[in-house]
Design a protein around this nucleic acid. Sequence first.
RNA 1: GCCGGAGUGGCGGAAUAGGCAGACGCAACGGACUUAAAAUCCGUUGGGGCGCAAGCUCCGUGCCGGUUCAAUUCCGGCCUCCGGCACCA
Length: 821
Amino acid sequence: MARVYEFDRIERKWQTRWEEAKIFASEKVEGKKKYYVLEMFPYPSGDPHMGHVKNYVIGDVVARYFIRRGYNVLHPMGFDAFGLPAENAAIQHGIHPAIWTHEKIERMREVLKRLGISYDWRREVITCEPEYYRFTQWFFLQLYKNGLAYKKEGPVNWCPSCSTVLANEQVVDGACERCGTPVVRKKLAQWYFRITKYAESLLEDMKLLGNWPERVLTMQRNWIGRSEGAYIDFLLPELNEKVTVFTTRPDTIYGVTFFVLAPEHPLVDRLIQGTPYEERVREFRERIARKSEVERISDLTEKEGMFIGKTIINPVNGAEVPLWIADYVLLEYGTGAVMGVPAHDERDYQFARKYGLPIQPVIRPHDGEWQGECFSEPGVMINSGPFSGLPSEEGKAKVVAFLAEKGLAKPAVSYRLRDWLISRQRYWGAPIPIVYCDRCGEVPVPEKDLPVLLPPNVDFLPSGPSPLARCEEFVNTRCPSCGGPARRETDTMDTFVCSSWYYLRYCSPWTTDRPFDEADVRYWMPVDQYIGGVEHAILHLLYSRFFTKVLHDLGMVHFREPFSNLFAQGMVTKDGAKMSKSKGNTVSPREIIEKFGSDTVRVFILFAGPPELDMEWSDRGVEGAFRFLNRVWRVVNDIVEMKTSIGVTFDRERIQSLERMVHRTIFRVNQDIEREFHFNTAISAMMELLNEMGDYLRTKATECHPEEKTMLLFAARTLVSLLNPVAPHLTEELWEILGEQELLSVSPWPSYEEAKLHEDVVEVVVQVNGKVRGKVRVPRGSSQDEVLKHALQDEKIQHWLNHAPVRKSVYVQDKLLNLVV
RNA sequence: GCCGGAGUGGCGGAAUAGGCAGACGCAACGGACUUAAAAUCCGUUGGGGCGCAAGCUCCGUGCCGGUUCAAUUCCGGCCUCCGGCACCA
């Protein structure tokens, strides 16, 4: 028998066997409990990196564990294949994005297969295939028909390096999330999805989510940014108009000393028309627009504004205050207008100080006087007419009610969430299925004409309009409505649109007339366990939740949340930093697999620490994992080859002790996997069992008693079985060596016997004044008196008690006795 | 600034309905095997003190305080690091 652990031969052998036996090809079986495990699919950029490997290995252990627990498991994989890198490759190297993408997919698929992940590859989904993106377009049309997709002109984030616009979610610190280039503001007509309509249910339905990391929910909550307040109308007698503000502090309305509009607010033009302010406002707007996003963020306190020559009237007391415009008021939030209360709002305070505007206190602290600075906490209302003396928290509603009677206010809720900008001025994405006709205007492409195919032959220039816009044969078309000449929309969709529904497609990837089969989705969805990096906490996860809610409201799916449980894994770092090509601290999974095998990589990744934490790559650690698997290999083989003879003497208690350990290991591994995916402690429990088996073997020469061999084989079989989800190839080989016929990967998970978890005798810690002074061995379940009797026989304990009377004693059954003297 | 999360040996990390701190692994040191090395196996390994010795003993989970017979775990107040958000009225 081979004594050397030939990982390469073993791994290829079992990968072939699994494929031949089709054990990971899942089929819907009505009535059988299902479990859908999904890892976030990758963008195909070449070889997967260690972060991918960690993600997919975690998912694989979960999938394999549930398969062996008897669930009907769905575990698919695919590729998020539209995106900029493919297009950049086309520009730089002249390779068509489709070819580049398929080459990269091929490389990634190869490594994933080499890792032995239990995917049902028949269900593979590739978002850049027309069979897929025709349905991405189909979904666009559904949203369009229901008023959830619309085109609007307005200020957008433009990345000069990527030559495209970005969604708010894709701008990080004023720079492009992808390439880090500072974003500039532009005014463009773009396509949006009305995600703001779902702001409330995106918040509300968080209740329906099972196990999601708190930090992800917090980030989403912050991003949606719900705040409660009121709309209040200020009066503009000159134009006989009202200007509405949104405020969360109606209780401070008596402290309004100025009023501010966003510089681009449409009312501004009407107010200054024909006045000397017209020219100065234009200059002011130009100066503000020139500021880049990065500059704006870097000097948040440096607010700029100007008086525009008018006054406005406070509805609560008729006070006349000056009307300003300022860059710190955003047109997109609330109503684009702010009532300035410098005494109680930090920003208004800074603004008033800079421009010498008056500061009027109307709230004092509960326990003192207003201190002449900005006080933004709740307190007691002062200088507020009939409301003076009220606690400010109560005053909020009272002020609104008072004004509401006159029709000048109403309670309101405001959100920070903006609509999702989905247009991209790039080639490698799903074309937006819209046609512009001179006669009929904006016309959606009929569903029967989908997909709107990307033309293969286009001109990839490094800059300027997108290739689609320059492709005449694409642009020029017929109007679906009147048949006359028309032009196609040349923007493509954000790739996050493609990834917002892929988890549905996996349920029935063969369906050609619909995006998915309803019965299949009803059976498999929602995803029971979703696993991925926390970098998608807002982007992908928010968009997918939105998509699901829309489909639910359109009656296409029966659930409101796509992912019941979410596990966010930590990063893989090296030298304390995230692995990246630019830092030169990457480790190639392909090379490590070649050197040590997939099982070693899997063990190392899982053993390094709890998976939700960042994990530091260590070459030494990989060797340790490799040593462990070698030891498993040797010990199990030694046990199989051990000769028996009834003449050999043996210690029965020792056999029982080993048996207890086997049962306890099953118990521990179950616990560690089920609660919180702590594979690191599960593996360490298995290592302890292995060490025990090794120790046992060492006490034997070449022979052992048949009873011992039986127990050793039981231990070996259990260890191999428990280790299987972690190191599937090695354990299949050993399973065969142990004489088993079935594939281990689909054999039932081992179970433990409650009665065999513990010894009949326990060790109880004896403390004197809270310090450990001895230990006694007593029968399980002994009473306090019995333990005390034993303890008092202990010489050391006697010494520490030193004849003093025991004042108090505390006893924890089978664990501890504390004597206080 | 606000919101999350975390601080435990030389290192990754165990142990929390309060009950033996440091499991398991890595590194290091000593030993066995070997002509030698690799591999493998055995032993030691938080810090200080006492002892020739088996051993004994004190301190120790970011810092200060509290509750308790007993605190890495609970409470109060700080410090540091990581992540997210940041003119949102």
